[in-house]
Design a binder for these strands. Structure first.
Lengths: 328, 328
DNA sequence: GTGAAAGCGCTAACAT
DNA sequence: ATGTTAGCGCTTTCAC
């Protein structure tokens, strides 16, 4: 592999001149430039990123810390983050935490300042004192813990409220919620949105209709739905805190021969691609994932380059109405 | 950030001794070891990976080149590859090609030997002459193009044959296939498995029942299914070359009020997590994704460390029978 | 404008 | 067993 020195020797100039050409710097004598470019071409020179970054004190990487790639929301998001990072010549390193405190701690610990220039975090269990980060970071989604880190995400309370309002506008009166979680910030916010929508319609908040979920996988949604269907008076609608829970809930309903949406309306959250193709298709809160990815990366880039101050970005969302609430 | 030199100064020893301790090398005088460890602790030393790798001539990264993270199969696989790579202290860099030739070429081009130690590739459009790789690589899945690169994957012909045999054993006679593709190696192999299963049961190979798909997304499966349902004699079963196509096909069938599996049995390929929760749940060929990820990473590690020779690994698969072929 | 040379943090001869 | 030192490939003062 050709190095700068090789190119310099071939072109009959100094390393500095080659470096100048490679980096598009300052003024290089046209004659030299031409010879350097020829030598570059002839040797097939490719800069050694490690060496460059060592010298520059940058790494060229950002970390994306998330629970699990097998969760569609995070997989879709990761794809968008990778695309957005390319614009700033960043490569993305993905760390999976599996939503555990230990996993999140170890992911953060591995984030040496030498490994990445910045980090995008989607924590679920972390506590305030865990956030001693060696690099600029941005938190995805809102979190109950109050840490001095930038955040990017939608207004979860408003989004949840919109989802439940939709159910209420359809005439549903006994609306359940699946996904309450004691330590998860976004869960608390979505629950608050649920509560507000009920309150503004003067509907009672019924404890037995709020089902916690320790994880947000399809199986958890199915289990929660079964417990709801076992109630003396089951709900006529359910708001799930993510699409996987909703898919699981619809599956459980189907197994009990409860028809969606006739007997039970279902709303999810995240708008996974799969939700447009389930049977019935799933009404879901749709955060603008591309906007989230773009904002997170841009914000970090500004911080790293210009040392910008802390800043939060609220991204838009919409409600995708589909067959799980309105029969076709 | 503390460097080796700082630690050495604090401990009153040379950098070499510190380096020895850090790397768990040879014999260090117990007294020195203790002082170095204290200094390590006091300074909170973390090695600069960039510098280490520059010196060692390694990067500490492997590339995972795949079409798109929003495709569940690749998302699940990526998660497993990341986990497997951790065992060898490798970080994984994901590159998305979006299945285009241009995307694949540009991903390969960016694979400088300075960026990654090795690469795992899942190409769809690449031609033979594109495979001039600067680093050891392994191909996921089989490909029609015959290139001198290690391969890891299941026996696609046998797997497809098993899927179609299952349909035949259920009494289906008019079995369609969705996902034929002119330039995709795995598509050709799965088609061959389909053909063989028909042949061994003395069923005719009917051209109009084989539907190509340029992409393997849900929408493509739905479109293909609609065209099949428009036939004078629609099929009574369909084998889809991946689960997304199958999900789309089931969706399209549902929209035409064709019942699955009573009127139409459906088999997919990949066994995505979502396929266990669709309604009806999807019968699918299940490659052992964890085995694929593990084998690919291990194989590369051996190549990089020991310069092992070219080698192919065939991983196991099974058929997950669910409601889309056998009603519950 | 361009060259010479220092040095980013680390490892590995080589010397002791 | 440990210290000294060269050098991985690059960028960047500092002279000229």
């Amino acid at each position: 592999m050709a190095t700068l020195k090789d190119v310099a020797r071939l072109a009959g100039v100094s390393v500095k001149t080659v470096s100048n050409v490679v980096n598009g710097y300052s003024f290089v004598k046209p004659d030299n430039r031409r010879r350097v470019e020829e030598a570059l071409e002839a040797t097939g020179y490719r800069p050694n990123l490690g060496a460059r970054n060592l010298r520059r004190g940058r790494t060229g990487f950002i970390a994306l810390v998330l629970p699990e790639l097998s969760i569609p929301y995070f997989a879709e998001l990761a794809g968008l983050v990778i695309a957005a990072a390319q614009d700033h010549e960043w490569n993305v390193l993905i760390e999976q935490t599996f939503g555990t405190l230990a996993g999140e701690r170890s992911a953060l610990a591995s984030l040496g300042p030498h490994l990445v220039d910045a980090a995008i975090l989607s924590p679920e269990a972390l506590q305030v004192d865990d956030f001693q980060l060696p690099v600029p970071a941005v938190l995805l989604g809102e979190h109950a813990v109050d840490v001095p880190i930038s955040r990017v995400g939608i207004d979860n309370v408003a989004a949840a409220q919109a989802a439940v309002r939709h159910l209420i506008s359809l005439g549903h009166q006994r609306i359940a919620a699946i996904g309450a979680h004691p330590h998860r910030g976004t869960a608390a916010l979505r629950l608050e949105g649920y509560r507000r929508a009920l309150a503004e319609a003067s509907l009672p908040f019924v404890d037995e209709l709020v089902v916690p979920a320790l994880n947000y996988h399809r199986a958890d949604g199915a289990a929660a739905m079964r417990s709801l269907l076992d109630l003396r008076t089951p709900p006529d609608a359910v708001f799930c805190f993510n699409d996987l829970l909703a898919i699981g809930a619809m599956r459980a309903a189907g197994e009990r021969l409860v028809r969606v949406p006739q007997d039970l309306a279902v709303v999810g959250f995240d708008n996974n691609e799969e939700s447009a193709y389930s049977s019935p298709s799933l009404t879901s809160v749709a955060p603008d994932k591309a906007a989230i990815a773009q904002a997170a990366v841009d914000l970090l880039h500004r911080r790293v380059e210009a040392g910008d101050v802390l800043e939060n970005v609220e991204t838009p969302f919409s409600l995708q109405v589909r067959e799980s609430t309105v029969a076709r």
